[in-house]
Structures are given as structure tokens and as C-alpha cells.
């Protein structure tokens, strides 16, 4: 019995000690002054872009920075690198007016380097989990390549892009300066592909970003 009382007393004391080290709930965490993110980016092509390359591509990275200007409102930038690619076998291209047909395995890929200015609103910027909505506006550099044997037929374009995004910044602790970023966005661009018979416009895609965040107090 004495042992049980002793253990109970130690438990109560430890609990009290632990609680005394905590700050009041209302002051938990901190609102960052800025944060930087580096995320792995998986691309899901949509619409005409999906006709060009239909596969999901995990080849991509996104690099971003945000600076809080007023409560949960942050402005910043995103710089990304993405590549979507797919091999198509036994595909025939035709040029009917010249009577030409070409059958070949072909490797299609689009290489993208988007630069965007971003505005985010964080709903609970001081909490461990800080969900946000944002909008990116900028330009996308894209190279569309069609590889057949050693031939590389390609076109390059700079175009406008718009990216609404939802996501969350998750601190690894209430006061941690490191965290995780999980975000999902839809990107609409004025970019297009004009190679052989495959023409498209207003390339669209979904992006899933998972990465690390360095949070500055």
C-alpha cells in the first residue's frame, strides 16, 4: 500500500511539474516572420496536357519562401522544377497532304521551370498546424520534347500561369523552427504544345507538394 501511495505521489508531483513548465494555452506557439520550403512535387497532368503525357510524374521539386506581412497574410515566391514524361510505343504520325506517315516509339517529355509570386493566408499562423490558402501568379518556362531515336524535336515557350493552392505548414513542435509542408495546387497556364499532330492549349495540371519547411521567428 505504501508503495502504491508513493508511486501515486510521484506521478502527481511529476504531472504538476510538467504542467508548470507549459505556458498558458493561449500563448502556445509563435507566428513566424518568414519561412522557406523545399518540397518534392508530384505532377498530375490534366486536359490537353494529359493527352500529351498521361502519366503521373514524381520528377519535380518546389522551392519557396514566404514573408508574413500582417497576421496570417504572407507574400513570397515559388521556384519549381518539374518534368513529365512518357514513352509511347507503335504510334503513327501522319502528314496527310504530303502522303507521309511515321511510325515510331517516341519519348515525350515536358520540362517546366515555373516562377511565381505568391500570396498566402494562414488561418492559424501561430499554431503547430497552420492551414493556408494561396494564389501564385507568374510565368512558366516549358520545353516540350518529342524524341524519336536520336532526333529531338522540341519547342520552348514562356507563358503566364495561375496557381490556387491549399496546404498546411506543420511545425514539428509548438516552438520548432522546422516543419513539414503539405500542399495541393491546381495550375492553369497559357502554355501550349504544337508538335506533329498533337496540339494543345492552356496546359493544366495538379501538383502535390510534400516537403520540409524552415521557419524563422
Amino acid at each position: 500500500m505504501k508503495k502504491i501511495l508513493l508511486v501515486f505521489a510521484v506521478f502527481v508531483l511529476m504531472t504538476g511539474l510538467a504542467q508548470s513548465q507549459d505556458k498558458p494555452a493561449s500563448t502556445l506557439g509563435f507566428t513566424p516572420s518568414s519561412y522557406y520550403t523545399f518540397a518534392w512535387n508530384t505532377t498530375f497532368t490534366m486536359g490537353d496536357f494529359n493527352k500529351w503525357v498521361s502519366g503521373t510524374s514524381p520528377a519535380g521539386f518546389d522551392f519557396g519562401g514566404r514573408y508574413f506581412i500582417n497576421n496570417g497574410l504572407a507574400v513570397g515566391f515559388n521556384l519549381s522544377w518539374q518534368r513529365v514524361s512518357q514513352i509511347y510505343t507503335d504510334e503513327t504520325f501522319t502528314i496527310p497532304d504530303k502522303g507521309i506517315a511515321i511510325n515510331a516509339e517516341n519519348y515525350r517529355f515536358t520540362w517546366m521551370v515555373p516562377f511565381q509570386a505568391v500570396v498566402d493566408y494562414h488561418f492559424m499562423s501561430d499554431k503547430m498546424i497552420s492551414p493556408y490558402i494561396g494564389l501564385g501568379i507568374g510565368g512558366d518556362y516549358m520545353e516540350h520534347h518529342l524524341l524519336i531515336q536520336e532526333y529531338d524535336i522540341y519547342k520552348t515557350r514562356w507563358d503566364f500561369s495561375l496557381t490556387p493552392e491549399v496546404g498546411a505548414l506543420v511545425k514539428f513542435g509548438n516552438y520548432s523552427q522546422w516543419g513539414a509542408l503539405v500542399a495541393f495546387n491546381y495550375k492553369w497556364t497559357t502554355n501550349k504544345i504544337e508538335l506533329y499532330e498533337t496540339a494543345s492549349k492552356d496546359l493544366q495540371m495538379l501538383n502535390l507538394k510534400i516537403g520540409l519547411a524552415m521557419i524563422i521567428r
Binding site: A59, F61, F63, L79, S80, W81, R83, S85, I87, I100, A101, I102, N103, A104, E105, N106, Y107, F109, W111, E143, H145, L147, I148, Q149, E150
Partner: peptide, 22 residues
């Protein structure tokens, strides 16, 4: 980011493929 090449791996290229042009 910059170290990531824009081209797919060489092994995936189609240098040995047969192309039919008519």
C-alpha cells in the same frame, strides 16, 4: 534543383528503335 537534368535517362532513349517512314 539545378542538378536535375531536364532529359530523361539515356537508357530510356529510343536509339535502337525501328522507325518506319512512308
Amino acid at each position: 534543383t539545378l542538378s536535375c537534368t531536364k532529359y530523361p535517362p539515356e537508357s530510356d532513349r529510343l536509339l535502337e528503335d525501328l522507325v518506319v517512314i512512308t
